[in-house]
Deep mutational scan, measured.
Amino acid sequence: DLSALRVEEVQNVINAMQKILECPICLELIKEPVSTKCDHIFCKFCMLKLLNQKKGPSQCPLCKNDITKRSLQESTRFSQLVEELLKIICAFQLDTGLEYANSYNFAKKENNSPEHLKDEVSIIQSMGYRNRAKRLLQSEPENPSLQETSLSVQLSNLGTVRTLRTKQRIQPQRTSVYIELGSDSSEDTVNKATYCSVGDQELLQITPQGTRDEISLDSAKKAACEFSETDVTNTEHHQPSNNDLNTTEKRAAERHPEKYQGSSVSNLHVEPCGTNTHASSLQHENSSLLLTKDRMNVEKAEF
């Protein structure tokens, strides 16, 4: 173990290094160091905050020279020094078990990766560091076993998940096959086929009936047209017969005018059967003409 005197000496050296690497504005270890034209180094955030307070150039807090945003430059070497100082402080805390008085939040800088452990060898070769390295080497064999167990647990979990997924996939297939086998029997399929065939026959029977009705309507229309044509021909046949009657009536009127007047009046009210309204109107006109002729003949006879 380190003596108290040596611990104090190391602590004083760390404090001196820390004062050199402090920012003059925030009085902390410089984060993202930036250098000016006057070779003074500050935190990048502190300098941008200072420049944004005034429009135009501002003055350096140490030498009062003008500073602009374009004049600022990043210093990589200074950032490396800060990183190495942080590593020294971490090693000091691990070796002594004491917390550094002016320690900052170094938890963000710590890294437990194997590459980081290899890099620590180049920091300080001390008894405390050696003991700590031995402890780490002793704890390393235990870690692979834990990793193997965790991997086995994960693989077993994956296997159970896969088996569950396969079961879920197989179950719908089985149910679907069961439904297909038990849903419709052979008799049901035959009945469905016969039902479809009967429906098709009914459709075939319905369509000819409609065509037959249309044919019957067409035949009825044709018969009505033929009947009207026969009526017209009958009226045409009746007209010459009426003319013959008129000639006979004229002759009778010349011989017996008194008797014919009474008979002509009675004939006005008689309509021949089986004739249309057109034929009756023609008869009325003929009878009126005959009456006028008879009157003329009677007057001539009187004179």
Rank of each mutant, 00 (worst) to 15 (best):
G210K: 10
K259I: 11
T248A: 01
L164F: 14
S281E: 08
M17I: 03
G199H: 13
R6H: 10
L203G: 14
G210C: 14
C90S: 13
E302V: 08
K108N: 03
E258Q: 09
L158F: 10
K19G: 01
S216P: 03
A223H: 06
S266T: 14
F92L: 01
G262L: 08
E285C: 14
I25Q: 00
E271D: 02
S126V: 08
E258I: 04
L282V: 01
V34H: 04
E140C: 05
N267L: 14
L136F: 12
F92S: 00
L86T: 14
C43P: 01
A220C: 12
H40Y: 00
Y260K: 13
E8S: 09
L62T: 01
A101S: 10
A16H: 05
R77P: 06
R255A: 06
Q147W: 03
Q18N: 02
S150G: 14
P272L: 15
V10T: 05
R135M: 06
S216V: 08
G97D: 04
I123A: 14
N242F: 14
V161D: 09
I41N: 11
K49L: 02
L137T: 09
S79H: 11
Q80G: 04
G159I: 03
R130L: 09
S126D: 12
K64R: 15
L158V: 12
L62C: 09
A220V: 10
I67N: 04
N112S: 12
G199M: 07
I41V: 08
Q154S: 09
V265N: 13
C63A: 00
V190D: 15
R251T: 11
N246F: 11
D188E: 12
L289D: 14
E9N: 05
K19W: 01
C90M: 11
I215R: 06
Q201T: 12
Q53D: 07
L146V: 13
Q93C: 02
I30M: 00
Q93I: 00
L146M: 10
N297I: 03
G199L: 02
S35A: 13
N191I: 03
L5C: 07
G199E: 12
N111Q: 02
P144S: 13
S216Q: 08
A253E: 12
T175M: 07
P144H: 11
S122A: 14
K31D: 07
D66E: 11
N105E: 08
P144M: 04
N65M: 14
N276L: 15
K31P: 05
T275F: 12
S186K: 03
D244F: 06
L62G: 02
E28S: 03
C63T: 02
K118I: 08
A224D: 12
H284G: 14
L21G: 04
M17K: 00
N131C: 06
T166G: 07
L5H: 13
L27G: 04
T275C: 08
E83S: 05
Q201D: 15
L290G: 14
L85S: 04
V13A: 07
V153E: 15
E302Q: 15
L51D: 04
E120V: 06
A133V: 05
V198A: 08
V82N: 04
E8Y: 08
E8R: 13
C63F: 00
S152M: 07
E140G: 12
E148C: 11
F92I: 03
V153S: 12
S176Y: 00
G199A: 06
E148S: 12
I20N: 15
C225E: 05
S280G: 12
E22I: 01
K55S: 10
E285G: 06
D39M: 10
M296N: 03
N52H: 13
C43D: 01
S145T: 04
Q201Y: 07
A253T: 13
L2W: 07
G274A: 08
P141I: 09
L94N: 00
L164V: 12
A193E: 15
R162F: 02
Q283L: 05
Q154T: 09
L289C: 12
E142L: 11
G56S: 05
K293G: 11
G182R: 04
A133S: 03
D66L: 12
T207C: 02
S197G: 10
L51T: 02
I124G: 07
H269D: 05
Q59L: 03
D294G: 10
I30P: 06
L27Y: 03
T160M: 06
S280R: 04
N234L: 02
R212E: 05
G210M: 15
F78R: 00
E271V: 13
S3V: 13
A133G: 08
P240S: 05
E254S: 15
T96L: 01
E22P: 00
S266F: 06
E249D: 04
H284F: 02
S126G: 11
E285F: 12
R255I: 03
A16S: 12
R295S: 10
F78W: 05
T248L: 15
T189Y: 06
K55H: 13
E271P: 10
S197I: 10
S145G: 04
N143G: 10
N157H: 10
I88A: 02
L155G: 04
K259C: 05
M127V: 11
I25R: 01
S145A: 11
E299P: 11
K222V: 09
P141E: 06
Q209T: 11
L62A: 02
L217H: 04
C46D: 02
K69Q: 14
S266V: 09
T163P: 15
E148T: 09
E142T: 12
A279I: 01
D188I: 07
I41T: 01
T277F: 11
H256N: 11
V161K: 09
T277L: 11
S3Y: 04
K221V: 04
L29R: 02
M296R: 09
D95Y: 00
N143A: 13
E22L: 01
L203W: 06
Q261I: 08
I89C: 05
Y104D: 07
P24T: 00
L86R: 09
S139Q: 10
Q138L: 11
R169L: 10
K54T: 06
E226G: 09
Y260Q: 07
E28G: 02
E8K: 14
R165E: 13
I89W: 11
V190I: 12
K221H: 11
Y129L: 07
F78M: 15
R162D: 15
N15D: 13
P33A: 05
K54I: 04
G274D: 13
L21M: 08
P208R: 05
L137V: 11
L27E: 02
A301P: 08
D1N: 05
L5T: 09
E120S: 13
K69P: 10
Q261N: 12
R255L: 10
Q59G: 05
V190G: 12
E249H: 07
K221F: 05
K134D: 15
L51F: 07
F78S: 15
L81M: 04
E99P: 05
P57T: 01
L5M: 02
S264P: 01
C46P: 01
S3F: 12
H284S: 03
V153T: 15
Q73P: 05
L268C: 03
S266Q: 03
Q171R: 07
P61H: 01
E254N: 13
E9F: 00
P33Q: 03
D218W: 05
N243I: 05
T149P: 11
E99V: 08
R135H: 08
L136W: 05
K259R: 07
N243A: 09
L136D: 04
V7G: 00
E99Y: 00
N267Q: 15
A252K: 02
P141Q: 14
D294S: 06
I25C: 00
N65Y: 05
N267C: 07
N15K: 04
L29G: 02
S58M: 09
E226A: 05
H40T: 00
V121E: 04
N131P: 09
Q11S: 05
V161G: 13
V265L: 09
V82R: 02
V232I: 12
